[in-house]
Design a protein around this nucleic acid. Structure first.
Lengths: 195, 195
DNA sequence: GCTTTATCGAGACACTTTGTCACTGTCAAT
DNA sequence: ATTGACAGTGACAAAGTGTCTCGATAAAGC
């Protein structure tokens, strides 16, 4: 196996790949994901159609790759938020709020839940990126539960799904203030029930 | 304008239409919605391809119609539940639980959030069916808020989005018991905050 | 009952999209 | 300089698409 290539060629490939993903996202946003064709994508990306097949086997794979890139970007931002907060409760609230806001602004770009739709992933990319996110929130919830800020009568796994799903509603909300209210309500659901 | 046709022809059309929708759902479930073609659908439904175009203009329209039919069925079941419950709090809980269970079992059929994905609806079918659902839940929440069972510091509209979105997590849960726990948590989010 | 009329269904056609060749040009390694 | 690997492209066969036209069938008018 020859040593890996020079920087130049790999950088170029990345550029082309990104152009493909951007173009596809644009096309999908404009005419709907079902009407996107390999031909359109190739033209939009400024490459030959046959070349496109050297990067991706079909439209579905491209949409998956785009979604994975999107999620990865979100994860990076969330990790920043995570690291800059102190204490289990604060960390949980900060990350959930950040997630909701990201989801909210992603709406205008009209992307999300494409992943849920395209669940032809057989435990691959989507699973990876999304499980990463899931794991992060679950960890936060477990910590907060140990600190007594979160109910412990429900498995953390299920609380995590609840949080992520509830906050997905941020996509449909009109204002940032509404998103913050959504976070409030969602957090109210995970607090220990009083008796 | 000639009076509308006899029952027979219309019944036949409905049969064919249903066969198309069923076949499409089956194909979409098996190979993913993006790879479904008009040719496959026609063959599966047992009609000529050209005939299929007399019913629907393209795959997207068929998926929309199938989704609308699905939602309509769910709505009918929810309306039953709604009518057989007494009192604002009980009604809210019953309907939300029923919705979660329906979502849960719909998972195996792998359908939902296809609607969210195909938001090429310009205020049409999807809007109609889904807004009907939204309206039902919002009404329940408003009643329950007036009775003091639900917080009134958040607009009912937003609480509704929260509920429906949170309960969508039922799709990914493994057991019915987990779904009931999800309903518990979701309801905890909408209760009046204590001070 | 028989014609009229509307519409269902299918064969056929022109066009687009798809997936895969074989081929050229370029860069890195020896 | 030669070799090997790979990006990129034009070309081709196959599949899918949308439309048109034509025959068959069932309701409606006389």
């Amino acid at each position: 196996m020859p040593k890996l290539w020079n920087e130049t060629i790999e950088a170029h490939r990345r550029e082309v790949r990104d152009a493909i993903l951007d173009g596809t996202a644009s096309l999908a946003a404009e005419h709907g994901p079902l009407s996107v064709t390999m031909s359109q994508i190739a033209e939009k990306a400024g490459i030959g159609r046959a070349t496109l097949y050297k990067y991706f086997p079909d439209v579905e794979a491209i949409l998956h790759a785009w979604h994975a890139r999107e999620i990865a970007g979100h994860l990076a931002r969330l990790t920043e938020v995570l690291d800059s907060a102190e204490g289990p409760a604060t960390r949980l609230e900060s990350v959930l709020e950040a997630y909701a806001l990201i989801t909210h602004e992603s709406h205008s770009h009209q992307d999300t839940d494409l992943g849920a739709f395209l669940h032809r992933d057989n435990g691959d990319h989507l699973a990876h990126a999304h499980q990463h996110l899931h794991h992060m929130v679950q960890h936060l919830l477990t910590d907060a539960a140990q600190a007594g800020n979160v109910r412990d009568d429900i498995p953390p796994n299920e609380l995590t799904r609840y949080c992520l799903s509830a906050l997905a509603a941020a996509r449909t909300l009109p204002s940032e203030a509404a998103v913050r209210r959504l976070v409030t309500v969602t957090l109210a659901g995970v607090r220990p029930p009083q008796h």
